[in-house]
Every structure is written in C-alpha cells, then in structure tokens.
C-alpha cells in the first residue's frame, strides 16, 4: 500500500482559491433569489418610513470594514504581523457594529414604523437583512478564528491562505450589501 503522494504536481493554493470562488458563486445565488423576490413582489416601491440615516451609516461602516480587511491581507503579504492583527481587529469591530446596528437597532425600530416581518415590504426587508446579517455573523466568527490564529503566529508572508480566505469571504458579504442597500433603501 503506497501512502506517499507527490504533491509537487498540484498547486494547492490555486485549488483552494477555485473552491472558495465556487462556494461564493453558489452562495451569491441565495442573495440573488431574495433580490429577485423583492422586486417581483414589490416592484420598485418602498415605504417612506425607513430610517435612512441609519441605513447610510451602516453601509459606511461595512464599506470601511472592507478597507480594513484589505489592509489586513496586504499587511501579512509583506510580513507585517502587527498590521495584520490591528486591521483584523478593526474589521471585527466594524462588523460587530454593523450587526448590532441591523439586528439590535434597525430590527427593533422597524416594527414601530409599520414594517413587520409578516407582511408587505417587511417580508423582503427582514428576509434580506436577516440572511445578510447571518453571513456577517459567520464572517465575524471566521475573522475571530483567523485573528486568534494570527496571534499565535500562524501566518507569514508565504503562508496566509487562512487570512486570504476569510478576507475574500468578507469582501463577498460586503459586495452583497452594495446590491442590497440600494434595493432596500434607495430604489424608487
């Protein structure tokens, strides 16, 4: 029985990247379905009562978190471990702020403004923000794991696939919001 495999022929990093992109592509379709549902059921109408300031604020926070996530990856690519840790922590904080903003604030406020999950626009609003918040939560958990692994010195300039994967996933979650925010708050 041969137990040794010659791994030289396979580019592990390229395989991992392809796998991750396929996963992201597949996952993106769930968001696409909810986006289609939103327009199929409610056209381009939306209630006036939405808290626009909060929506804009949350969007800014999430976009900035993508920048810090990028800087985390760029830092470890050049071997800057403290830059990695600092930016990962910032990303986690921004992500958590976004979660608190959506689930803790927006979701509490919306029913008082007449947007309820059971009927009308609320169906789209709560399902879309809910699914997205779930992804933000998984992203934050992933970043936390990467953060603690990074503190143990698990990554270096030639070996940071874990950081790259978590950051790519984070960007994906952000890009989804780039579509969801206008669809929920801006279209007319």
């Amino acid at each position: 029985m041969s137990t040794h495999v010659s791994h030289a022929t396979y580019d592990r990093l390229a395989i991992n990247r392809l796998g991750l992109w396929l996963f992201i592509f597949s996952d993106a379709l769930i968001f696409a379905i909810l986006l289609i549902t939103r327009f199929a059921l409610f056209g381009t109408s939306r209630p006036e009562e939405l808290n626009q300031a909060l929506g804009l604020g949350l969007t800014v926070i999430l976009l900035v978190s993508s920048l810090t996530a990028y800087r985390a990856e760029a830092a470890i690519a050049t071997g800057d471990r403290s830059g990695l840790l600092r930016n990962l922590l910032l990303t986690i904080i921004f992500g958590t702020l976004f979660l608190v903003g959506v689930v803790g604030w927006e979701w509490r406020e919306a029913p008082h403004l007449g947007i309820v999950p059971q009927e009308g626009y609320g169906i789209a609003f709560f399902s879309m923000t809910g699914l997205h918040a779930f992804h933000v939560l998984t992203g934050v958990l992933l970043l936390l794991i990467v953060f603690f692994n990074a503190r143990r010195g698990a990554y270096g300039p030639d070996n940071y696939w874990g950081v790259e994967a978590a950051v790519k996933y984070w960007h994906f979650v952000d890009v989804v919001w780039v579509f969801f925010y206008p669809a929920l708050y801006l279209v007319r």
Partner: peptide, 29 residues
C-alpha cells in the same frame, strides 16, 4: 440547488414566522 433550498426555506419561514412570501393576502405570490 440554491433555488430549491431557498424556496423551501422561504416556505418554512412562512410556516414558522408567518412571513407571507407566498400568501397573496400578505403581499406574497
């Protein structure tokens, strides 16, 4: 596969939380 999964998830949300995705009375279809 995401489509069947999501459509079934939406029905379950309608059953458990009353989100009327497919209920015309609540704005669904």
């Amino acid at each position: 596969t995401q489509f069947i999964g999501t459509s079934f998830l939406m029905v379950v949300l309608e059953r458990l939380l009353g989100m009327g995705f497919f209920d015309p009375e609540k704005g669904g279809d």
